[in-house]
Design a protein around this nucleic acid. Structure first.
Lengths: 108, 108
DNA sequence: CCAATCAATAACCAAACGGTTATGGTTTCA
DNA sequence: TGAAACCATAACCGTTTGGTTATTGATTGG
């Protein structure tokens, strides 16, 4: 799956409630909107809107089951953020690049 | 230096102009507010406000030289974001953890 | 010394944001 | 079959945000 634009990913994760929802989905696995609403402690429409933003960033994926929608986290959608850190997080980049090169030599 | 709160880092990097400023500082090194203003193509006060947000996240550090202030990027302030990705970016985490472990065995 | 330069702050504004309540469309099941 | 459950969308609202111009304080250089 083609990743979303970096801007959408950064934007989506800027809000603490949205991060919390994403975290909850990665920890506990797939959840209905109902469950997430209970977890987040805000209204159901508010949760739906957050999920829309996360969907735009491809960080979550919906699965319709009858009248309920189950959402799951899509961790590989974080790739644009990881790539950005790779480019501009100099200190950490060096480590990672060296390791990446290493890995490639070891597991062709 | 103790890192800033994750929320400040995520917030600061959510804005594309702020990311661009940070990128420019990591690429070209230390810059005056004047130079950054020219680069960003917005007003000087706007740049100053962006720099304030980046400062709060400890992503940039100012150095007063006479009447000009030179800012430099502080890439290790990205640590809170990297840590978060380590916790919740499952797919990528595996890669990184494997690599990290490797490095440790190789460079004690 | 004094005019100009640099950067931060203040005051202001439109747009975006994060929340709410109200509504509507499906789907379930008693 | 009809009421209730689930979720998305609409309409609305106060606050935050990203920008502007105006101002001020400090520093420099002719």
């Amino acid at each position: 799956m083609k990743p979303a634009r970096p801007d959408h990913v950064f934007r989506a994760l800027a809000d603490p409630t949205r991060r919390a929802i994403f975290e909850e989905l990665t920890r506990q696995g797939e959840q209905t909107v109902h469950a997430l609403t209970h977890y987040a402690g805000i209204s159901q429409p508010a949760v739906s809107k957050h999920l829309t933003v996360l969907k735009r960033a491809k960080l979550v994926h919906p699965r319709r089951l009858g009248r309920e929608t189950h959402y799951r986290a899509q961790p590989d959608a974080l790739a644009p953020m990881v790539d950005w850190l790779n480019l501009y997080g100099a200190f950490w980049r060096d480590r990672f690049d060296r390791l990446e090169a290493l890995l490639e030599r070891m597991e062709p």
